[in-house]
Design a protein around this nucleic acid. Structure first.
Length: 277
DNA sequence: CGGCGCACCTGAGTGC
DNA sequence: TGCACTCAGGTGCGCC
């Protein structure tokens, strides 16, 4: 599901509906996500306080409230955040429903329950955010995401370059789809050990990653099976994918057959000719 | 510390 | 129609 572009599209979709609004009430399914939903903290720290900002960090949605508390949501594999009229019928797997002060609701739907919902109370938010940030890798859409910096990061990492790109503690936001697409665009074999890439190759990787992520955001994200934006709209970037899910198809660049291999437990697609070791 | 395997869940798709 | 099986975009744990 949601990688950086899908989370960014979700944030962009939520923003106009949430800024300045307050939560009046919370309802949860009672089922645990990655952790139990902290219902009491939502009530005591978030309710009846205006929402100040909606931001993305890595693959997390951060919703900041007056008073300093933060609602932190991760979409996991199947999570979706959407805005609905309060009378709209509930969907299967709606696990968190936040009633807003304008007859609308923010709903978190997550079939596989790999998502998470956390609250950083106002008096602990700064400390918790610092700890959170140290666990997140380089932001691909930040000024620090340069070939030089990534080259430095990868210096003593012998993981396959694809696993390196997907390691959220090193680089955040890039999941399986965009790792595959980035390496195809950069012409690099996914099994190359990360520490064997040259500075020039890392510059290519960084440039390709940024271009693809931005293009995907413009297209509204990728809807492979079920991603939907905050207003229920699908994304269209899946129509522009070059290798992901294309096993057996012709490479767009050279016509060779696209290969599929499992790397680090994840399906990996590449062109053996354009992405030679 | 680095790297691997796996668990956490449900649903969609496939083959018999 | 049903059953068994595989696979899925993420993260973080335990283990060597």
């Amino acid at each position: 599901m949601p990688e950086l572009p899908e989370v960014e599209v979700t944030c962009q979709g939520l923003r106009p509906h949430l800024l300045g609004r307050s939560i009046l009430a919370i309802h949860s399914s009672g089922k645990s996500l990655r952790q139990p939903i902290p219902e009491d903290l939502v009530r005591t720290c978030l309710c009846d306080r205006p929402i100040l900002t909606v931001e993305r960090r890595a693959k997390y949605v951060l919703i900041r409230f007056q008073g300093g508390a933060v609602l932190v949501i991760h979409l996991g594999m199947t999570g979706k955040l959407g805005i609905f009229p309060k009378d709209a019928v509930a969907a299967k797997h709606d696990h968190l429903v936040l009633r807003l002060d304008n007859e609308m609701e923010l709903r978190f739907n997550d079939a596989r329950r790999f998502g998470s919902v956390q609250v950083w109370p106002g008096d602990e938010a700064e400390e918790l955010e610092q700890a959170f940030l140290t666990r997140q890798g380089l932001e691909p859409l930040s000024a620090e995401f340069t070939g030089e910096n990534v080259h430095q990061l990868a210096r003593q990492c012998r993981l396959p370059v694809k696993s390196f790109l997907m390691d959220s503690r090193r680089i955040s936001g890039i999941g399986n789809i965009y790792a595959n697409e980035t390496l195809f665009a950069a012409g690099i074999h996914p099994l190359c050990p990360a520490n064997t890439l040259s500075l020039k190759q890392w510059e290519d990787v960084a440039r390709c990653a940024v271009r693809i992520l931005k293009k995907a955001i413009k297209a509204g994200g990728s809807t492979i099976s079920d991603f939907l934006g905050a207003s229920g709209q699908p994304g269209y970037f899946q129509l522009q994918l070059a290798v992901y899910g294309k096993k057996g198809k012709d490479c767009l660049r050279c016509g060779e057959e696209i290969m599929k291999e499992v790397i680090g437990g994840r399906a990996t697609f590449f062109c053996g000719k354009c992405q030679a070791m």
